[in-house]
Amino acid sequence: MAQLLFNCFAAFTVVCAAGVVLNKNVVNAAMCLLLSLVGVAGLFVALNAYLLAFLLLLVYAGAVVALFLFIIMLLDTKGDQQPGLKHLSLVARILAFALVAGGFVSFFMRSQLPEPALATTPALGAELKLYAYQLFTTYLLPVQVLGFLLLIAMIGVIVLSKKFAATEDAK
């Protein structure tokens, strides 16, 4: 049963991710990203990370993809226009593709991972408590830094998206 669910979600995720890459239409690509994220959330549930699955859906599928869709509609952009590939970029792409393919081949041929058995995870309530405990003890400093990062990002976005008509008039 677990294997079946894993196969379904994994195939769903990878197919939708391929949809993001291959779709010419930007809105369709964003929708494929949304579905792919739902698949990843399913894989998280299979890994007993219920809170992270919920957060992934909330933050990524809820906020990030919605933001992407807003920007797509705001910019009213067309999909990819395909003028002829320049020589150098074509070579670079083929090289990068070969690199990825080579990485995969070596991964399947000679990866020697130890296969640990599934560790036991705490029950859901205890798991939440463990998250909170870790965030407020071991990882207290990163949490504070992240708070500042979010503040800086917010201020940066406001500055970036502001129209500087006033300063241009002053010149």
Binding site: V59, L75, L146, V157
Partner: peptide, 19 residues
């Protein structure tokens, strides 16, 4: 957790730059 937070901030700033 941290990666999700940083990704959210990154998306906001990146999209603002694109606009």
């Amino acid at each position: 957790f941290f990666i999700l937070t940083v990704a959210a901030a990154e998306v906001a700033v990146g999209l603002a730059i694109i606009v």
